[in-house]
Design a protein around this nucleic acid. Structure first.
Lengths: 122, 122
DNA sequence: TCGATAATTCGTTGTATGCCGAAATGTAGC
DNA sequence: GCTACATTTCGGCATACAACGAATTATCGA
């Protein structure tokens, strides 16, 4: 019951749902999610921590950045089902769709300029 | 997003999950659920109200009793998927299993004596 | 080494929520 | 009508939690 509740509580917040939807098509660093949600970095970090402890996301550190992604390796069956259900439920949501457009914009910006987000020296 | 959040928030409480699992095999009146959860009737009523407003359960009044059941008729696809997912996730939970045994006990008691719960005059 | 940036942790604050008892509502039987 | 019971609503408290700013840690480039 504790594990299930960790998942359902993780789902019970709009910003965390937006994060999960944002990760559907690939990993994102914390600063990108922060920009998307327009929240303080501390707040986003805490949301990601909750998603991590619920087994819904994994993370990877690269230089100054920490990239989060949906839990894919060692996915507990429960976590996999949970992710599948919530992403399907969010599929047609206007907020999620709008976020997806903004994320695509971020992708284009990153590809136009050199490397990661906020490239060191323009 | 509002509807999805109503569902995920409804899922984010142990007692509400126990209620949903208790309704898996048929309707239950409020007093039976109250006995199962060992909570104040006011508390149970509020939980049921939340489940109702999330579209997860329906209710039916019969005499003094109000029977709740999983949303089955006019089930919004979202609600149907949500119920299917959560019941599957709860399937092997010890608390839910224990509840199921206690509910079977309640059923046997009801069938041994005349009508509904707490029969008027034993 | 120093300064800038990314991320997390910590402490605080305002709001949301779970719980209860008391009161109100509705129904059944006397 | 009156009483008893089932349920809901209301008002309250206590806890949980989302949000922030400040402080901390870590990494990179100058």
């Amino acid at each position: 019951m504790r594990k299930i509740l960790a998942v359902t509580k993780a789902f019970a917040d709009e910003n965390r749902l937006r994060i999960l939807a944002a990760l559907e098509h690939g990993e994102r660093c914390v600063c990108e999610i922060t920009e998307l949600l327009e929240l303080a970095p501390a707040t986003v970090s805490k949301h990601l921590s909750q998603l991590y402890h619920a087994g819904l996301v994994d993370s990877r550190k690269e230089g100054r950045w920490v990239y989060y992604r949906l839990a894919d390796e060692d996915p507990s069956p429960a976590a996999r089902d949970a992710i599948a259900w919530i992403l399907n439920s969010l599929r047609d949501d206007p907020v999620v769709r709008s976020d997806a457009e903004r994320l695509a914009q971020i992708d284009r910006t990153e590809k136009a300029l050199p490397p990661c987000p906020v490239p060191p020296r323009g």
